[in-house]
Write a protein that binds this DNA or RNA. Structure first.
Lengths: 197, 197
DNA sequence: ATCAATAATGAATACCTATTCATATTAGTA
DNA sequence: TACTAATATGAATAGGTATTCATTATTGAT
């Protein structure tokens, strides 16, 4: 078995265990059992428990960034780009529920206790949104007095809160498609009725 | 010293300690020391460590709900109501940073591992937003095809993500006032330039 | 001042788990 | 096949902490 296979086996196991029990309640032995390796083996591939979480995050969000950037390349309209981003973000919950839960709940919290970890991957991810907004503003489609720095956070926060709804709730009330459309409509045209009916 | 004083002393100490170290890294003895009581005393007022967190949440969010509802009572315009809510939400970070951090980071995570805890206080809090949206729709000011159930989550998520920015980042780039206005503008009028200039 | 409650204490208990490392297994090579 | 280096093992280590409870202090009524 190639080295990378075992590394990835442990990562995948960790995703499952962290999703099920949370980072702090997860035991190294749980992860080892799930990955079908000995406890000690984990320390041949990771420095410590935190390192598993960080490493997992870097790897997985890296993949997500690549995927969504490829999808966005093909599109020019910033409105449609936003919809693509929203759908892709929400789709993670359908495709990789465990991973979505870990990114949602665990990573964010751990951030706080690892100030040294600057989490550049996360910044790279949300900067995809601000790039879309900038483009829309440059094209004259989007309102120029919206701050992309605030809007990117607001949009990410909104999408992420929708995700949390699904993570916590076993019976989702809306489909991903529907939710993505609603959230985009909200951010694109706003709550207020357009003054010219 | 009245019973309720000690209960509240422990709660306040727990807020500080949870904010500083996080729920899982916080020790009962840390809380006891901060509250200037013996470790065992805590168990006269709370069943266990989780109970401190839950209890703290119920008490504090209860107060917040009361406060914001009083503020909203005096206002009729749903747009202004939204701004009041947004400001009030963000203001918590200025007024009670520790509490804001705990509500932000700790509680949410713990939720998942306490499925039996339905967190009705949180629901009550975000339902304030959907009530505002409903009102705006009834008054014919807000677009009727926006789902208040989705919009309440999106707006809460956006505000909460802005909060997280401040919790994690020591040097905030925007003021609360500015952020509240930007977020409200985003949700009220949207990114797109109005088609009738 | 005396006496029950009532409240508070903090050392002891009882249990848990990340990490290490001496040992064993496997893979690669000649 | 024999040998070496690279991998893997899992029991033992070393450290940690939520909770309990026998004891002590406080309170308030008589």
């Amino acid at each position: 078995m190639r080295v990378s296979d075992k590394h990835s086996k442990i990562t995948q196991a960790a995703v499952k265990v962290f999703a099920r029990k949370g980072f702090f309640n997860a035991r190294i032995s749980d992860i080892a059992k799930e990955a079908k390796v000995a406890d000690g083996t984990i320390y041949l591939y990771f420095n410590n428990k935190y390192d598993i979480l960080i490493s997992l995050f870097e790897d997985e969000i890296g993949k997500i960034i690549l995927q969504v950037k490829i999808l966005l390349e093909k599109e020019d309209d910033p409105c449609k780009k936003l919809l693509i981003f929203a759908k892709h973000h929400l789709l993670l919950l359908e495709d990789k529920k465990d991973l979505a839960e870990v990114l949602q709940m665990e990573l964010r919290q751990s951030n706080k206790f690892m100030k040294e970890y600057r989490n550049t991957k996360f910044i790279e991810y949300i900067d995809i949104i601000s790039a879309i907004i900038h483009q829309g503003q440059d094209m004259g489609i989007f309102n120029a007095d919206i701050s992309p720095g605030i809007a990117k956070r607001a949009i990410f926060g909104a999408l992420d809160e929708m995700s949390r709804l699904w993570v916590l709730d076993d019976a989702p009330h809306y489909t991903i498609e529907e939710t993505a459309h609603q959230v985009c409509a909200l951010f694109l045209t706003g709550l207020k009725k357009s003054s010219a009916p």
